[in-house]
Amino acid sequence: MRKRVIEALRNLRTRRYIEAYAIATVAAVLAALSLVNDVVSDNVRWAAVLAGVGVLVYRVTLPEDTGKLAADDWLFDRSRFHVVTFTSRLVKAKEVWVLAPSAANVLSAPNCEAIRQTVLRQNDGHLRVIVLNPDEAGAVALAGRQLDDSVDFPAEEFEPALKSTIRRLAALAAWNTSGTVEWRLASYNPGFSLVGIDVSTEAGVIIVEFHGCHNVSTENRMHIELTRKNGGQWYAYWQRQFEEFWKQTNAPGIVSVEPGGRR
């Protein structure tokens, strides 16, 4: 009984099944009043009965509410970013995670400026980035095959994009901002990219993109979008994935990349 009461209170707080609880309350009140003769007319009693039947029929026609997201709520391609842009997600953000082979798209000049004006304006603002180490020649060549050669219409080459990102990260780290910028270099490509925003908070979001073995363009890559509220164990899983990869990577030290992308 106690469990049912707690569940009912939770439903009321989240405004689920409001119409059913309202009819049930009215029916209970009328039932109590019916114990006293002539207090409640027959017309009122029948109105309550019919309303209750109507609500029951209505509830039967609704799909089962499992509390879980439907596939269309968390499976996307990159066109999703035209609907909910990266910069719009930063308005109230305090922490951003980025893990990607080059992170050239998410760390574009406009996005970096948006990070500076939002996340890094705050004393507790924090940007953490992991990209592939340009000195790992074998890993860079393999990532280039996967990310460039497996796309029918590549927009840019991987290696120059990575070197451009390295220069940009060095510039970001030198900015005089209230927030903190940290970046590290990975020795291999894990096969996915990850963006996390305020991951440890209730409003946290994690977006994971899978590179695959072939795509028409980078726009076609599938990604999943999980929230702390609805992501469950998989939200925690991808949170741990970033943290573990962060531990395995190295601080950049001195990385010299000449202008124009030549080392």
Score class of each variant (00 low, 15 high):
Arg2Cys: 12
Lys3Ser: 13
Lys3Gly: 09
Val5Ser: 04
Arg10Gly: 09
Arg10Thr: 06
Arg10Asp: 14
Asn11Asp: 14
Arg13Val: 10
Arg16Pro: 02
Glu19His: 09
Glu19Asp: 14
Ala20Ser: 13
Ile23Leu: 14
Ala24Asn: 15
Thr25Leu: 15
Ala31Ser: 12
Leu33Phe: 15
Leu33Cys: 14
Ser41Asn: 14
Asp42Val: 05
Val44Met: 13
Ala48Val: 12
Leu50Lys: 14
Ala51Glu: 07
Gly54Asn: 12
Gly54Leu: 13
Gly54Lys: 14
Val57Pro: 06
Tyr58Leu: 03
Leu62Phe: 00
Pro63Tyr: 00
Thr66Asn: 00
Leu69Arg: 00
Leu69Val: 02
Asp72His: 03
Trp74Cys: 11
Asp77Arg: 01
Ser79Gln: 14
Arg80Leu: 02
Phe81Trp: 15
Arg89Phe: 01
Lys92Met: 05
Glu95Thr: 09
Trp97Leu: 08
Pro101Leu: 09
Pro101Gly: 12
Ala103Gln: 10
Ala104Glu: 15
Val106Trp: 08
Asn111Trp: 02
Arg116Pro: 05
Val131Gln: 09
Leu132Lys: 08
Gly138Gln: 08
Gly138Pro: 00
Ala143Arg: 14
Gly144Leu: 04
Pro154Met: 10
Pro160Gln: 09
Ser164Glu: 13
Ser164Ile: 04
Thr165Ile: 08
Arg168Glu: 08
Ala171Tyr: 13
Leu172Asp: 06
Trp175Thr: 03
Asn176Asp: 13
Gly179Ile: 03
Thr180Ser: 08
Val181Met: 10
Trp183Thr: 01
Asn189Gln: 08
Leu194Glu: 04
Gly196Ala: 07
Val199Tyr: 08
Val199Ser: 06
Ser200Asn: 08
Thr201Gly: 03
Ala203Cys: 02
Ala203Ser: 13
Ala203Trp: 03
Ala203Phe: 01
Val205Gln: 04
Ile206Ser: 07
Ile206Asp: 08
Ile207Glu: 08
Val208Asp: 05
His211Gln: 11
His214Leu: 09
Thr218Asn: 14
Thr218Arg: 13
Thr218Trp: 08
Thr218Tyr: 07
Glu219Gly: 04
Glu219Arg: 11
Asn220Cys: 06
Met222Asp: 06
His223Leu: 15
Ile224Val: 11
Ile224Asp: 01
Asn230Arg: 02
Gly232Arg: 04
Trp238Asp: 12
Trp238Tyr: 15
Gln241Leu: 15
Phe245Asp: 08
Trp246His: 10
Lys247Asp: 11
Lys247Ser: 10
Thr249Phe: 15
Ser256Thr: 11
Val257Leu: 02
Glu258Trp: 07
Glu258Ser: 07
